[in-house]
Deep mutational scan, measured.
Amino acid sequence: ITGDVSAANKDAIRKQMDAAASKGDVETYRKLKAKLKGIR
């Protein structure tokens, strides 16, 4: 179950990262990237 949750989280975070990148929001992008590392 835990694996599914983190996989879903990663997917959601990647989508947020894409949105931040397209807006040029480097700050948010970095925060999300750090979150991704924390999940692993």
Rank of each mutant, 00 (worst) to 15 (best):
Y29G: 00
R14D: 02
A34L: 09
S6D: 10
V26N: 07
D11T: 08
V5N: 11
D18N: 11
L36K: 02
R14S: 04
K37D: 14
K10N: 07
A20K: 02
G3L: 10
K31C: 15
M17Q: 01
D4A: 12
T28G: 04
R30N: 07
A7T: 09
V26H: 11
N9G: 08
S22W: 06
K15Q: 08
A8S: 10
K37Y: 07
K31S: 03
K10E: 14
A7E: 09
V5W: 11
Y29F: 05
L36D: 00
R40P: 07
Y29V: 04
V5F: 11
K10Q: 12
T2S: 12
A19P: 02
T2L: 09
G24P: 00
G3Y: 06
A34K: 08
I1N: 09
L36P: 00
A8P: 09
A20T: 02
G38E: 13
I13T: 03
V26C: 15
K15A: 12
L36C: 08
L36T: 01
R40A: 12
V26E: 07
V5R: 12
I13H: 02
L36M: 04
L32Y: 03
R30Y: 06
Y29L: 07
S22Q: 13
A19V: 12
D18P: 00
A12S: 11
S22F: 07
A7G: 08
A21L: 15
G24S: 03
L32A: 00
T28A: 10
K23H: 05
G38F: 10
K15W: 05
A19H: 06
K15D: 04
K37L: 13
I39S: 06
N9K: 13
K10A: 15
L36Y: 05
M17G: 01
V5G: 10
D18C: 15
K10H: 13
K37N: 11
V5D: 11
G38P: 03
S6T: 11
K23F: 04
K15L: 08
Y29K: 00
L32N: 00
K23G: 04
K31N: 02
A20W: 02
G3M: 11
R14N: 03
R30W: 06
E27S: 04
K31P: 00
K23E: 06
A21F: 14
N9H: 13
G3H: 09
K35W: 11
S6V: 12
D4V: 12
V5I: 12
D4R: 10
R30K: 07
A7Y: 11
T28E: 13
K37T: 07
M17E: 01
N9S: 12
M17Y: 02
G3T: 09
K31R: 10
K31H: 04
A21W: 15
V5P: 10
D18Y: 15
A19N: 05
K35H: 04
A7W: 12
A21V: 06
G38R: 14
D4P: 09
I1P: 09
R40V: 14
R30Q: 07
G24I: 03
L36H: 02
A12P: 03
E27T: 05
D25K: 00
K31Q: 05
K37F: 05
E27Q: 05
G38L: 12
A20L: 02
Q16I: 04
Y29R: 01
Y29N: 00
L36S: 00
T2H: 12
Q16R: 06
A8V: 09
